[in-house]
Write a protein that binds this DNA or RNA. Structure first.
Length: 371
RNA sequence: GGUAUCGGAAGCUGAAC
């Protein structure tokens, strides 16, 4: 049983949940560790529904079982479920609180995250970093900076958090210096540095970082590809794409922008059809690709085909009509939105402006919640 | 049963004026 449990653990760790499940189902007897490793396997592979099922079926649960499920909810941004679980926990240790900080931070509820953080009896570096990440990712970089200064110690991870949110505030030169000062630098940090240069318009530097990295992964290659895309080097992007041995959703999605900008509808369609899995971001990217190449009907068709929409989907469609001066369609899209941000309002304004409907533009402007 | 549980990296919308 010990060996079989280890097998479940191993399969879970390498990402073949299916095999873990197979072994688990074959067991005639299961002990605490069989269940624990199975739960962990589901959590690691983002199978939350399955994890929940395992958790509910387990004959006994330790604090770590609670924490594992809680962490999975937190990382996926399922705030409500995380909250519920947290409240029902028999004990809450530091790891549980850290996960809760993450859960709030990931869903943009920084105040709540801060509250948990402040009320913790003890904190470790992970608590600080979780909150820091919340500030930085939600764009409250000043607050983040303050927190960063207050931290008792810094490590590579919190440095990466700062770097990946920096757009100019943190000087890249300084960042690189401290990067070089770290004795051990992992792939995550290398990739973050690459992306930071790319965001800053320094493609050459980004490439140099890529060459300097001790090893590559699909993520780092995709980061390089994205760097080329954002610099408008579409041919180079194609080359990198062609040379990649394996692809995933993110990589293919990054290429949609290339096809869109080149007006290469054939490749776009083909790549999209061939995708084994699609998520909301990839749907949005196709939509945007059609929009950029001026295929309004295709864009609308894509929008209607999508299994779900978010703010980005709506904004993309709206901007498509706006940029082509179709203020009537734009208004329909605008009215259909469940929620709007500043970008949506601006797009609608520009739709009116482009079609010379100044009265309507002024009216709209005056009804804006915030200008 | 000695890392079973907590923090960080890649892809989608505001082109230019």
């Amino acid at each position: 049983l010990f060996v079989l449990n280890k097998l479940i653990e191993m399969y879970g760790k390498v990402g073949s949940l299916h095999h873990a499940r197979l072994v688990f189902d074959c067991l005639t007897q299961r002990d605490f560790y069989s269940w624990a490793f199975m739960l962990s396997a589901c959590c690691r592979n983002d199978r939350l529904d399955e994890a929940r099922l395992v958790f509910d079926t387990m004959p006994e649960r330790s604090l770590q079982s609670w924490n594992a499920l809680l962490a999975a909810f937190a990382q996926a941004g399922h705030l409500d479920e995380a909250k519920l679980l947290f409240e029902r926990m028999p004990y809450r240790d530091m790891a549980a609180c850290n996960s809760m900080v993450t859960a709030y931070a990931k869903s943009g509820h920084i105040q709540e995250a801060r509250k948990i953080f402040d009320e913790m009896p003890m904190r470790n570096l992970l608590s600080w970093t979780a909150l820091l990440s919340g500030y930085m990712q939600s764009g409250q970089t000043l607050q983040g900076e303050v927190l960063f200064q207050k931290m008792p110690v810094w490590d590579l991870v919190c440095w990466t958090v700062m770097l990946s949110a920096c757009d100019g505030g943190w000087s890249l030169r300084e960042a690189k210096k401290s990067f070089d000062a770290f004795p051990e630098r992992d792939l995550v940090a290398w990739t973050a540095l690459l992306t930071a240069y790319a965001r800053n318009g320094q493609l050459a530097e980004a490439k140099r970082i890529f060459d300097e990295m001790p090893q590559w992964s699909m993520v780092s290659s995709t980061a390089l590809l994205a760097a080329c895309v954002q610099a408008g080097k579409y041919d180079e992007a194609r080359e990198i794409f062609a040379s990649m041995p394996h692809l995933n959703v993110v990589t293919v999605t990054a290429m949609f922008a290339v096809y869109g900008h080149c007006g290469d509808l054939e490749s776009l369609k083909q790549a999209f059809e061939a995708m084994p899995q699609r998520d909301l971001v990839s749907w949005n990217a196709v939509l945007a690709a059609y929009a950029h190449s001026g295929y309004l009907e295709e864009a609308k068709h894509t929008f209607d085909q999508m299994p779900e929409h978010n703010l980005v989907s709506h904004n993309t469609l709206l901007a498509t009509y706006a940029n082509h001066g179709h203020h009537k369609n734009a208004l329909i899209a605008f009215a259909a939105m469940p929620c709007r941000d500043l970008m949506s309002w601006n797009a609608m304004l520009s739709a009116y402006a482009q079609s010379g409907e100044l009265d309507r533009a002024v009216n709209l402007f005056q009804s804006m919640p915030q200008r």
